Simulated assay, not measured.
Amino acid sequence: MKKLSAIALIFVLMFSTLLGGCSSSSKSSSSGEDTSLDYIMYKGELVVGLDDSFPPMGYRDDNNNIVGFDIDLAKEVCKRMGIKVKFQPVSWESKEQELSSKNIDCIWNGFGITPEREKVLTFTEPYMSNPQIFVVLANSGIKTEADLKGKVVAAQSGSTAYATIEKNTKLKDSFKNFIGVEDNVKALMDLEVGGSDAVAMDTVVARYYMTKEPNKYSIIKDTTILDEEMGVGFRKGDNALCKKVEDTLKEMKKDGTLAKISKEWFGEDLTTIGE
């Protein structure tokens, strides 16, 4: 009986271990071993968390399909890894919680690398530069940062532009009001109808909209809210998965695939990884 009980216990422990590898943290609680890449390869899918209202990085087209520059990058990376990719829209304000709860496996959507985020996430090397700037209507008469004094300024809640201005009390207090909005699309719509006088946002997004409507918007010159670089964010300690994605992006940079995708979206190669 004791022998049978021992054998039964072994099977229970083996079964529990298999379940734990599928549902628990990507790190072994006992050994600290990084199994993040094994976890993804085993399930055969990378779930990418994104804001689906963030053109040209990731957004919905007229047919409600999620498209964008980062979408094309993620698709190619997963293809080379031999796994599927799933794009999961999330609230940008709760993106880190979605990641920690394993509803998503990474954050990949024009995601700025900041010291605060690096404390709680693991990032790839930067793959693109993306300064945060102020966008105004071309006919607004606002030319400099000083012209924003007494004006209403908006930014996407949870964005690095929003967080940076929140910390810069001198700049923030010079505004009549500083408001957070759901996404950049709404921010620009509010700007157009007079809900705000300026929007703090990503250069790549601003350039995209200015290309679509060249005479509608302008960027306040010689003013940068934050010099930012983009990376792919993973759960803290998911180094093996992070390195695999990073190495694949470097491979794509080397063989010209990154340049090709960038030129399709921006007309030039703006990628920086591996340089």
Rank of each mutant, 00 (worst) to 15 (best):
W108G: 00
G20H: 12
N184D: 08
T272H: 03
G150W: 03
D255I: 08
F178E: 04
G21D: 15
T248D: 02
K243E: 14
P115W: 09
K3N: 14
F266D: 09
S100C: 01
K75N: 11
V135L: 04
E213I: 14
F15M: 13
I10K: 04
G112Y: 06
I261C: 02
L99Y: 09
T211K: 15
D70Q: 07
Q97G: 11
Y39E: 08
S157Q: 09
F178G: 08
W108F: 09
E125N: 03
I273P: 06
G58C: 11
I142Y: 02
S23C: 15
K172F: 07
E229C: 12
T248P: 13
E192F: 06
S24N: 15
T124P: 01
S218T: 14
V152P: 03
K95D: 09
A138H: 01
K2Q: 09
L9Q: 09
R60C: 03
F11C: 14
S30T: 14
P55Y: 01
F111L: 00
F54H: 13
G237K: 06
I83Y: 05
N215L: 13
E33K: 12
Y59W: 10
E275P: 03
S25Y: 14
I113P: 06
K84T: 13
Q156Y: 00
S157Y: 04
F11T: 14
S36I: 11
N64A: 13
K250P: 04
K3T: 14
T114E: 06
E229T: 15
S140G: 02
D255C: 10
Y209P: 05
L191T: 04
D70T: 08
Y209L: 12
K250V: 02
M189F: 02
G256Q: 03
T248S: 12
F175M: 05
P56K: 09
V85S: 11
S101N: 14
D61T: 05
V48M: 09
N168K: 01
I104G: 03
S28D: 14
T35P: 04
S129I: 01
S26H: 13
P214Q: 11
L258Y: 01
D105I: 02
S5D: 08
D190Y: 14
S53P: 00
N64L: 12
P89N: 09
D197F: 15
P115Y: 08
V136Q: 04
T144I: 04
Y217K: 15
S23V: 15
G82A: 09
G267M: 05
G68L: 07
T144D: 01
P89K: 11
K170P: 01
S159V: 03
K244H: 03
A8P: 00
G194Q: 06
G49M: 10
L9D: 04
L188T: 07
S29C: 02
E76G: 02
E275Q: 10
M252S: 09
D255H: 11
V152L: 03
E264H: 10
V120T: 01
S129W: 01
V152W: 09
N63S: 15
D61G: 03
K43M: 14
G195E: 10
I83K: 00
A198G: 12
K253S: 11
G158D: 07
I273L: 07
A6I: 13
K27D: 15
N63C: 12
L50M: 10
N64W: 08
I83Q: 04
L191C: 07
V135H: 01
T223I: 10
L121E: 02
G195N: 10
T17R: 10
E264P: 00
E264Y: 06
T122D: 05
R235E: 15
